[in-house]
Write a protein that binds this DNA or RNA. Sequence first.
DNA 1: CACCACCAATAGTGTTATCAATCGTTCCCG
DNA 2: CGGGAACGATTGATAACACTATTGGTGGTG
Lengths: 236, 236
Amino acid sequence: MGTTHRTLHNRVLAVLGPAIAAGEYACGHTFTLSGLEDGFGVSRTVAREAVRVLESMGLVISRPRTGIRVRPRRDWSVFDPQLIRWRLAGDARMDQLRSLNELRAAVEPGAAALAAERGPADERARLVVLAEQMTLTGRAGKLDTFMDLDVTFHRRILELSGNEMLAGLSDVVTEVLVGRTSYDLMPHQPRPEALRLHTAVAQAIRDGLPDVAEAAMRAIVTEVSDALKDTRPPQG
Amino acid sequence: MGTTHRTLHNRVLAVLGPAIAAGEYACGHTFTLSGLEDGFGVSRTVAREAVRVLESMGLVISRPRTGIRVRPRRDWSVFDPQLIRWRLAGDARMDQLRSLNELRAAVEPGAAALAAERGPADERARLVVLAEQMTLTGRAGKLDTFMDLDVTFHRRILELSGNEMLAGLSDVVTEVLVGRTSYDLMPHQPRPEALRLHTAVAQAIRDGLPDVAEAAMRAIVTEVSDALKDTRPPQG
DNA sequence: CACCACCAATAGTGTTATCAATCGTTCCCG
DNA sequence: CGGGAACGATTGATAACACTATTGGTGGTG
């Protein structure tokens, strides 16, 4: 657990953050600093530092006389890596995974196109090697190493896009892929069609064909979306 | 300027954050708390709170004996709204705008598709009205009200996507559209083709046609990308 | 000469106490 | 009954101090 719990205010955050993220304290609920001091047995300084972080994530707002108030969800910085982790750790894990996966589906085709346009040639070529390794380990049924390769494959494409915002989503994509595997949302053997598509994406990027890469990547992510849809709760 | 400068640590952030974001302090540069105290004339507590926020954004890391060290850009939380604002305010403004616009280009087609699938019927219908108003004000050359309508149009589609992550990008998209206008990257009269495409997107979403909506939206964003490309600096 | 153990200097970390500023509430006066 | 002044709860800010982790030097040893 070499997490970030080195400091005391981080330990407070590790409890308070997930609780708020999980909706245990409804929008409008207010804390007081003294309440936090007593509840966590920490000094005022530490409590305030924790509140500052929550405030910068948009989870709460702190005002004199009013206290520390939980803000409505729409004001939260939903891209904050810390917040994403908290939500993935809680009951809303599946919801968060679905959101992230949809984001992935929206973003990755465009990222693949950009990678084909701009990535350095040698890096682009290495993608094909990666895809080949994926095919081998996939056919062999080595699921965990396959997942590692899958993660680096998608990460690298986002990084090759040459766009820092897209590259900033690589952690998110990693979470989705890892979470998907650990939740048994993956077939026990990667589907041959998926393997073929990964190779197609890699080759298109290597050959500098943005449109082809984009289309192939879109095929990948929509396939995944369809797979996730089976686990989606019924909705209006 | 009713900004968030209500508290002292926020005023420190308002100086320190943009400076780090602008690269005035290279990766690896270290501050000390006492240095910040002296430099800003604030107490240790205030300096520490500011550092906590910077740390939660991934801009710096604070360690005993070492001080407060600026982290490499790849570790920054590039989606943090505060960080985005700081960078838009600095010299790297055009770079940030380009990044954001590429993100937009990658995301909005998918968001349009989701909106067509899931948005409430009445909201979807209102999009068409919005598009009509855009056409009218656009033809009339009322650029500022056109921009407002454009902003709400794109915002609403992201919100209608029913995905909180995509909805969380609406502020980003707003920044891009506003920044684009204020930087004279817009034609003085919106292009008729663009107007037609907005209407097409709205109608497709209203009629529940994800693929059509996605294609039309892609046409919109690629047109904008092409326009921005003219202002792109040459790159290897 | 290389390497390891130890020590001390240096920062951040955490606590406590105290006062100032803010702002919702209440209550009084017109 | 309405407006405004006083009150008090709560955060905002400062100061002083003890604790602790980290690192870099130092000296001893193989």
